[in-house]
Each structure stands twice: as C-alpha cells, then as structure tokens.
C-alpha cells in the first residue's frame, strides 16, 4: 500500500492566477456598523467600517460596485456601495428591509460586527465621462447605487460639463437621502426631484420621472448626441423607458449605463444564480452599458 501525497492548495503556487489566490475566496473583512440612520420606514443608511486600519485603507472600490455583507448565522447578500470611493473602507450602504437578513439589519444597533467581502462587479466608468455632460437618473431604491457616482461627479465637479440629477419616488415619505439635497444643489447641478403621489408636505413636481426627463431633454437636445453620458438606476421597466427616451433624443446606447439586480449567492461567478441569459451579473455587471443590456437575453 502506498499513500498519495496530500496537496495543500493554499501553499501551492498558482502563477496562472496570482490576483485571485484561493485563500481569499471565503475571506471576509471584519467590519463594524458604526452608525445607523433611519431614512424612511423601509430603508436605513448603515455606516460600516472595516476594523483593521490597514485593510480599511487598502479597500478600494469604484462607483457602481457592490459588496457582499454577511451576518454570521443570518445570511449574506449583495449591496451596492452608496458612498464615495475616496472614503475607502469606510463605506455606506442604504438597505431596504425585505427579507431575512435585511429585516435583521433593520434591528441592529451600532457596534454590531458584520463581514464584508468585495468589492465585486463592474463600475460606472466615471473617468471616461470627464469633459462631458452627465445625466444621473434614479427611480426608488435606484438612488442607492446612484449615490456613489453622484458623489464622485460632485467631488470632481470642474471636470464635467452640465450635471443633471433626476430622482423620482412614489411618495414624499419614500424619498431617500433628503438631508443631502440642499448640499448637492450647491455644486451647480440641476437637481430634479419628483413624486407620483404628493401629500401636504410636498410642493415640488408631481408625476413620473419620464415627465421631468421629457422637459430636460428639450433643454439638452443639442448636446445629447455628442457630449453626454447617462447613468440610470431603477427597476427594469423604469430604466428601459428612460433609456429608450434618451436614445430617441439622440444619446447613443453605449453612453448610457444601467445597473441590473439579480439574485446572488456568491458574487464570484460560481453559484450561477445571477445569470441573465448566460451572462453573470456579478462578473460582467451589475453595471452594463445599454447596448449590452439590449443584447442580453432575458434582461428586461
């Protein structure tokens, strides 16, 4: 009888894939929820800090990417990073309570430790948009992924031409990040907020995002074909409508970016749950240009 040698895969050299070493697969950064702000009935903003200072500084991401957040024994799920990339491993997530993990999170207090892995996925190519006009459009919870590119645009305001932000929600009570609007307006941007069902607190525009967009397209018509990019985040019906309107007004498909949402259990192209047609949303997305989305089977 003769024993085979046991191979410890963590000690093996893997010249073919140095960036993704096997030891980091189930690796999570231990992080602490440092603050929780309730924003509406359904959503809270969580400030989460990677505990190890070195790992915190080493954590870099780009607007549009997401993390997997894990609470031991409760669950793990993907969330878009809502904060600015310059804050590195000191991230903010805007989370709606809808299921197991998110309802648990709705009850946690600051000081709770969670696991963070990532960042994963593709990003909005903000640097490619330098020198151009930008239209940022969000519907509902779409503001969560939209806030990070918006912050980046504002932090680099002088590098962009006109900046339009259009954000719509069903009711005024469902608007997120309300405390930021006044600050955003100071950056010479055109901020349009619209609700479908106003109440007594509301004195702004009423209707659908597409109505405001129609108006703004009129003003931007001359620049749409050449010098403009758009980032659109929201439910599929909403972004399809919006992108089709922009396209009809002359904005090329490859200059519009959307973020797709699918079920995800790994974020690493392994569980297949996020596939659209046969494309992995976690690897090739969640950010796609509209041309690619139109070419994905099952996308819309």
């Amino acid at each position: 009888m003769e024993r085979l040698e046991f191979v410890d895969v963590l000690k093996e050299e893997r010249p073919e894939a140095p960036r993704h070493d096997l030891g980091s697969f189930e690796y999570t950064y231990k992080a602490e929820i440092t603050n929780v702000y309730p924003m509406t009935e359904q959503e809270k903003l969580y400030q989460i800090q990677i505990i190890d200072p070195e790992k915190r500084r080493g954590f870099t991401f780009r607007p549009g990417q997401f993390v997997m957040l894990e609470v031991p024994g409760i669950g793990e799920a993907p969330f878009s990073i809502s904060s600015s990339p310059i804050r590195r491993g000191d991230i903010e997530l805007c989370i709606r309570k809808v299921g197991n993990l998110t309802n648990f999170l709705a009850k946690v207090k600051r000081g709770t430790q969670v696991g963070i892995s990532g960042p994963f996925g593709t990003c909005f190519p903000v640097e490619k948009m330098y020198g151009q006009n930008i239209i940022l459009i969000a519907g509902g919870l779409g503001i969560a992924p939209l806030r990070s590119p918006t912050m980046t645009v504002l932090e680099n305001r002088s590098r962009f031409g006109m900046v339009e932000v259009i954000y719509g929600a069903k009711r005024p009570s469902e608007l997120l990040f309300t405390y930021l609007y006044d600050m955003w307006r100071k950056f010479d941007i055109n901020l349009n907020i619209i609700v479908e069902e106003p109440d007594h607190t509301w004195d702004g525009p009423v209707g659908l995002i597409t109505e405001i967009l129609q108006e703004r397209i009129g003003a931007l018509r001359d620049v749409l074909e050449q010098e403009t990019y758009a980032i659109v985040c929201g439910p599929p019906v909403m972004f399809t409508f919006v992108c089709n309107m922009l396209m009809a007004a002359g904005l090329p498909m490859h200059k519009m970016f959307v973020s797709l949402e699918r079920r995800m259990h790994c974020g690493r192209g392994k569980c297949c749950r996020c596939n659209v047609g046969s494309t992995y949303t976690c690897l090739k997305g969640p950010v796609f240009d509209y041309w690619s989305v139109m070419n994905l089977k099952e996308a819309i």
Binding site: L4, F6, V7, D8, V9, L10, E12, R14, E16, A17, H20, L22, G23, F25, E26, R268, G269, K270, L283
Partner: peptide
C-alpha cells in the same frame, strides 16, 4: 474551467480536485 481557471477560483473544489487520483 469555471471553478479553477476563471476569476475567483474556488478552494473547496480546488482542494478536492488537486487531491484526486
């Protein structure tokens, strides 16, 4: 191809595959 040679190779599979005769 998908579990070892793509982005994010999975060590759970790798360790079993590399210890297989």
């Amino acid at each position: 191809k998908v579990l070892l040679e793509s982005a994010y190779p999975t060590p759970y599979y790798a360790s079993k595959r590399k210890n297989m005769f």
